[in-house]
Every structure is written in structure tokens, then in C-alpha cells.
């Protein structure tokens, strides 16, 4: 589902678009707009804010529901897009969910996720050690290991220097 996207399409099953006028956006700071958005549009989850002279963009991400709010200072307006994801996309959003922000629910998720990642690294190192210690004929293993390492670094350098 994560890799083979074609048979498991990731789609938004519902997209709500709202455009509203809000007086005095120029005098409201980004943190206040985040708090206002969560109450007004019932948004939850982690958020990221991007700000420049003309606009403030706030992206909310919650597995299953994501939202983007674009506040334009010049026109005192906000454009809101709230997207409800299908099952495949929701699972993908869970897979991509990381970072220690968004409250203790997300903190615990990120912590367990990091523990899992650490265990994956430990599995690979101990797996390599076990293989090396228990196998007498290692040629096939070395070939597979060399091929994957060469492919990984070739891809990196291809992307960097082309």
C-alpha cells in the first residue's frame, strides 16, 4: 500500500473549500490565527506555519484530515481547504507522521516510532553479525550486500551530480 500506489490509490474523498473575510488580519499574529483556526474550523493535529509580508499559511496535518489555511493580509481574507482522505491515504499519513509536536498523543506516537526505527537499525546490525558468524559460505550474501550498497550510493551520486 505504501509502495505500490497504483492498485491502492491515495485520494481525498472530500474537499471543503471556504473563502472568508476577516477584518484586521494585519494586526493578528500567527499563533493567534492558529488558535482561531482550530476553534473556527474544528481543526486538530500538528501544524506548520509559513509567513511572509503578504500572507500567513498554516498547514494542519492529522491522519485522515489535513487542512491548509492561507491568510492574505492585503485583502483581509482567508482561504481554507479541508481534505478528508480515503483509507489508503490515511494509512500513508500515519506512516509519515513524525515529529514531537501536536500534543502528547503525537509525542508518544513519535517516541514509539523512533524506538521502532532504532530497533530496525539494531536488527540489521545484529542480523549481519549473526549471518557472518553462522554462515560458512558467504559469497551470495556479500554479492547481495555489495549490489545494494553500490546501487544506493550510485543513486545518491546520480541525483547529486546530474
Amino acid at each position: 500500500m505504501m509502495i505500490f500506489e497504483a492498485p491502492f490509490p491515495r485520494e481525498n474523498i472530500k474537499v471543503v473549500k471556504i473563502k472568508e473575510r476577516i477584518d484586521g488580519i494585519r494586526s493578528i499574529d500567527a499563533d493567534s490565527l492558529v488558535r482561531w483556526s482550530t476553534v473556527k474550523y474544528n481543526l486538530r493535529g500538528q501544524h506548520k506555519t509559513r509567513e511572509n509580508e503578504e500572507r500567513i499559511v498554516i498547514d494542519f496535518s492529522h491522519p485522515g484530515i489535513t487542512a491548509s489555511l492561507e491568510f492574505t493580509r492585503q485583502y483581509d481574507s482567508v482561504y481554507v481547504e479541508i481534505r478528508k482522505a480515503n483509507f489508503n491515504m490515511t494509512m500513508n499519513q500515519f506512516h509519515r507522521l513524525h515529529g514531537y509536536s501536536g500534543g502528547w498523543n503525537y509525542f508518544l506516537w513519535a517516541f514509539v516510532y523512533d524506538l521502532s526505527s532504532t530497533s530496525m537499525i539494531i536488527f540489521s546490525v545484529t542480523g549481519f553479525y549473526l549471518w557472518y558468524k553462522t554462515e560458512r559460505r558467504r559469497l551470495a550474501g556479500w554479492l547481495v550486500l555489495a549490489a545494494s550498497t553500490i546501487l544506493t550510493f550510485s543513486t545518491i551520486f546520480y541525483l547529486m551530480y546530474n
Binding site: I3, L151, T152, S154, T155, I156, Y158, L159, M160, N162
Partner: peptide, 20 residues
């Protein structure tokens, strides 16, 4: 780049990335 390889597939015009 190393980090981006996770979940990365074909990059447009990057024929070698088909292998990845």
C-alpha cells in the same frame, strides 16, 4: 539525499532512478 531515498521512486527525467 540519503534521507529522501526513503520512499523515493522514479524522478522525472532521471532514467537511472527506475532502478531505485
Amino acid at each position: 539525499v540519503f534521507n529522501s531515498l526513503h520512499g523515493s521512486g522514479y524522478v522525472p527525467n532521471g532514467s537511472f532512478t527506475t532502478l531505485w
